[in-house]
């Protein structure tokens, strides 16, 4: 396989995971929550690099996983103990973690450690920076997301559609939220290098929103559409970023997502 084929394969694995997780995020009205997670991975990457002084992907992603989890814990704690609205808190937490991440990356860029090269790709994404061994990581995440989704499908359906009813029959809605959050953190962590922190939430949200517009009543078909659109935009984005090597993959993907979304939104505009 050529390097380009490896990259496309890895990109497709990320696209499938994002396609599944994105649908749940949109249906559960937790799209903004995913934005908090994507912006909160950056300080984790910075801290992991400063601690270990090397650019081993699994170490950086472990750091990303920890800080994204921390951001959600902060969000829920603040939500419980303050009277601020959820969207205000999300903006606060998101900005704080992202600012910390940027500050750390600037400090790292000023250091003399040669391994720092390429860390900037985590902000805007660079599909070409994916190595064949990273694909294995994407495959593991895909396996986990598909398995969790398969096992908890009805549970997530219940709690996404009718939380009050779900609680009345003893279903733990908070646990269901945690499952969706866990799947989204996994997907975000594995996708940041390819798509970038800033753009990843668009990849999670826009294709799944289009899928929900296309297919209104069958959830299984929504998943198929969402995955399909995700693969399409990520493949086109990758090809374009290879064709124009100095342009970030994430930006291409978001532009393509937006154009597709625009077509569907206008087509389905009831007014």
């Amino acid at each position: 396989m050529t390097n380009f084929e490896y990259v496309l394969l890895g990109a497709s694995f990320i696209a499938i995971s994002a396609g599944i997780v994105g649908v749940w995020l949109v249906l559960r009205k937790e799209a903004l929550r995913s934005d908090v997670v994507t912006h909160s991975v950056l300080p984790g990457i910075g801290i992991a690099f400063l601690l270990f002084q090397e650019k081993k992907l699994w170490l950086l992603l472990l750091g990303a996983f920890v800080t994204s989890l921390l951001s959600l814990v902060s969000l829920d704690t603040l939500s419980k103990h303050t009277r601020l609205k959820k969207d205000t808190l999300m903006a606060l937490v998101l900005s704080f973690f992202f600012a910390c991440g940027l500050w750390l990356l600037v400090k790292i860029q000023e250091s003399k450690n040669a391994a720092k090269t390429g860390l900037g790709n985590f902000i805007f994404g660079k599909m070409a920076s994916i190595l064949p061994e990273d694909i294995l990581f994407a495959l593991i995440v895909l396996f986990l997301v598909v398995t969790i989704n398969f096992l908890t499908y009805r549970w997530l359906f219940f709690t996404s559609f009718d939380r009050t009813f779900s609680e009345s029959i003893g279903v733990k809605t908070s646990l269901a939220s945690f499952i969706v959050t866990f799947m989204s953190i996994l997907t975000i962590v594995v996708g940041i290098q390819a798509v970038g922190v800033v753009m990843l939430s668009a990849l999670l949200i826009i294709p799944s929103t289009i899928a929900i517009i296309i297919e209104k009543k069958n959830l299984s078909r929504i998943f198929v559409w969402s995955i399909g659109i995700n693969i399409l935009v990520i493949v086109i984005g990758t090809i374009l970023s290879y064709s124009f090597p100095k342009t970030p993959t994430g930006a291409w993907i978001v532009v393509i997502c937006f154009l597709i979304a625009l077509v569907f939104f206008l087509k389905n505009n009831k007014k």
Binding site: L27, K29, F157, S160, F161, D162, T164, F165, K217, N218
Partner: peptide, 14 residues
Amino acid sequence: YLPQRNSVDWDFPA
């Protein structure tokens, strides 16, 4: 238990 009708999103794909 039957919740109030407006407690759910009726645009949900179901």
